[in-house]
Simulated assay, not measured.
Amino acid sequence: MRVLIVEDEHKIANSVKRGLEQEGFAVDVIYDGTEGYDMASTEEYDAIILDLMLPGMDGVTLCKKLREEKNHTPILMLTAKGQIQDKVTGLNSGADDYLVKPFAFEELQARVRALTRRPQNGGNIILKTKDLILNTLTFEVKRSGKRVFLSRKEFSLLEYLMRNPDRIISKDQIIAHVWDYNADILPNTVEVYIGYLRKKIDNAFPNSTPLIHTVRGFGYRLGN
């Protein structure tokens, strides 16, 4: 899952970024509303954490512009203001949820995960393909009833593939959803991680049907 944080308070933004990365998210941080709008409208994200008061372009304007452009990425609005009218303004601009500062990181994380589970993002907590099961809350992966241990990046890659079963996913799409904008991606990075997954998901279960397939010239597909 890839998340964009648009927040001008560097300490808060960087703290949230570190916390989400520890939970397996790929995270981009922007400190200015205008730059945040540019990123949100040109890159693909699974959720946006958006401050209400920003330099360049305020959060309400940014949110409205994205919705006018039919960008339906889930948005969690942050603000230091707790008045009802501020909440109403944020939600009426198109935000999906609202959180008042100061907040506990655990609550923010729970709200972000809830937003990414909504129908436009694939919806389910438990993902299943044949005998492969992935739990997005406990980070457990099992195949044929046996626990499979994955790194955070391997888990994120597998989750993205399982949210798009039987679809051909290009390397660019994988990079856009699994790695953040500033990640140092080598030409063979995706192939390497696909190889890691194959060893743990397919090769380790010789009696099960291989699930990860390479579609030469196009990308990868997870399914029968």
Results as ranks from 00 to 15, higher is better:
R67D: 01
T79E: 13
V100W: 06
F155V: 03
T61P: 01
N121T: 09
T42V: 08
K128P: 07
Q109G: 00
G145A: 08
R147S: 10
E69H: 11
K101H: 13
F139N: 13
Q85W: 12
D86T: 09
V88E: 10
N124P: 00
V100N: 06
D51T: 06
D51A: 07
N135H: 11
E69A: 13
I49Y: 01
P119Q: 09
V112I: 09
F155M: 11
N135T: 09
P102W: 10
E43L: 09
V100K: 04
P102Y: 11
D96P: 09
M53A: 11
N71I: 01
L137A: 10
N92I: 00
L99I: 15
R152Q: 13
L137S: 12
G59N: 02
L132Q: 06
V141D: 06
S93N: 04
T136E: 14
R118P: 03
M53F: 13
L132W: 09
D86V: 03
E106P: 00
A80M: 14
L150P: 02
L66E: 01
H72Q: 14
S151K: 15
V100I: 15
S93Y: 03
F139H: 12
P55H: 05
A47D: 04
G90E: 02
V88G: 10
E44L: 12
G82T: 09
K64G: 00
Q109F: 10
K70S: 10
F149V: 15
T73M: 04
L134M: 15
P102V: 09
L54Q: 02
G90C: 12
E107S: 08
Q120G: 00
I48A: 01
L66M: 14
R143F: 06
S93M: 01
G94Q: 07
L157M: 15
G145Q: 11
L137N: 13
E154A: 12
Q109H: 14
L54I: 06
D96F: 08
C63T: 10
L91E: 03
L127G: 07
L76C: 08
I48R: 02
L132Y: 07
E43I: 05
L99C: 11
M57H: 08
L78F: 15
T116A: 05
L99M: 15
E107L: 12
T138N: 12
T73I: 07
D58G: 03
L115C: 06
P119Y: 12
R147F: 09
R113G: 08
I125L: 13
I84N: 11
L115R: 01
T138Q: 13
L66Q: 04
T138R: 15
I48F: 01
G56E: 03
R152T: 09
R113M: 11
E69R: 14
V60E: 02
M57R: 11
N71C: 04
G90K: 05
V112Q: 05
L66R: 04
D58L: 05
I126N: 10
R67E: 01
N124M: 08
S93V: 05
A110E: 14
R113I: 07
S144Q: 13
S93G: 04
